[in-house]
Nucleic acid binder design. Structure first.
Lengths: 189, 189
DNA sequence: TATAGTCTATAACACTGTTATATTTGGTGT
DNA sequence: ACACCAAATATAACAGTGTTATAGACTATA
């Protein structure tokens, strides 16, 4: 078997386990078992668990970046941002384990590689360009950046609160709506 | 030695280790060693690591709740909210490990107890009351709640992005300022 | 003082990530 | 086709984790 297909098989196994049971289910031995290979294989193809987590990190951030790159035809700039935000919320919901790996980082044993960091930066750049179009052409770069961070912070904040369920009386289906309303308000300001 | 002082000694040791090295440094054996007792002592006084984490969770959320209960004399309602938000950002910065335990939850092995959940709910209630005073008296409860969630989401989002450092060109000292500006904008809307 | 009961200490179990030591495999050069 | 070398593999082990069973010491009551 080629080295490349071995890598993809490991990643597929890891991604499956990750979606099923989150980070707790993602042990090196479990990945190897599901990929029908020996434990040490993970260390041959990747640099141990770090490498696998890095691949999942990149996988997750690429989905986020993709959400930010949505090019809706015939939509106003503001509508395009809103549409991207909806896609962002979808990713956070459907790939919760990935999202928590990306932003949680509660596991001190893992820190993303430079390559992973690049994917993260490019995702932010996508939002930056989307945001720029909703503002006057002569807007200062710092102001655009502040607006983009503002939007992302609101999105991320809603996702985080939803995961936490800080208010037990919360109406779950309402969160999406609230988040998008806030984004709309921020874009208008 | 009384059982109560044993508990406090364990909690002090755990809190120290937690601040020093985060969740990774918080092993049952390390806690026991620093508290000068046997490993099994953690299981006598608490229900294992779950119990210790729960205590730290409550410790952290009580700090957040305290920030939300700030009663600034001679300040307008809006100024009081801003002031509480500053206190919130301070807690998130100075007790980062606690904050990540509260909101990160990437470690699937721990889930907060009902008591811990109550402390969380009371913290939210604090923000809810602060927020209510910034709005007209006849504002619907749902709208107040939405506004409070909006503020908390923005705060939490900025903290999360700052921890993540999603934009490498970020000017750290600027984050606080940006966050407070967003809050101000949201309260005005 | 004797005894009951709780707390504690030692060691073990099943798991984690990682690595050293063989062993087998695959491809290349003659 | 045979020999050789390099790379991937398998087995087992090491140090660490949370947790628990068994045996010991200590306190407090009868």
């Amino acid at each position: 078997m080629s080295a490349d297909s071995t890598r993809t098989k490991i990643l597929a196994a890891a991604s499956e386990l990750f979606l099923e049971g989150g980070l707790a289910a993602l042990s090196v031995r479990a990945i190897a078992k599901r990929a029908s290979m020996s434990t040490i294989g993970i260390y041959s193809q990747f640099e141990g668990k770090q490498g696998v987590l890095d691949a999942l990190y990149i996988e997750g951030f690429e989905m986020v970046a993709k959400a930010m790159e949505q090019t809706g035809e015939g939509l106003t700039p503001k509508q395009r941002v809103i549409s991207s935000c909806e896609a962002y919320l979808d990713v956070a919901e459907n790939f919760n384990a990935h999202y928590r790996l990306i932003f949680g980082a509660a596991d001190d044993t893992y820190s993303p590689s430079p390559e992973a960091h690049n994917v993260a930066a490019s995702a932010f750049k996508g939002l930056l360009m989307l945001t720029a179009e909703t503002m006057p052409d002569d807007t200062a770069q710092d102001d655009i950046r502040a607006r983009a961070i503002e939007v992302w912070a609101a999105l991320h904040g809603y996702v985080g609160l939803r995961q936490h369920q800080v208010s037990s009386e919360a109406d779950i289906d309402n969160w999406r709506e609230l988040a998008l309303a806030t984004i709309d308000k921020l874009l208008a300001g």
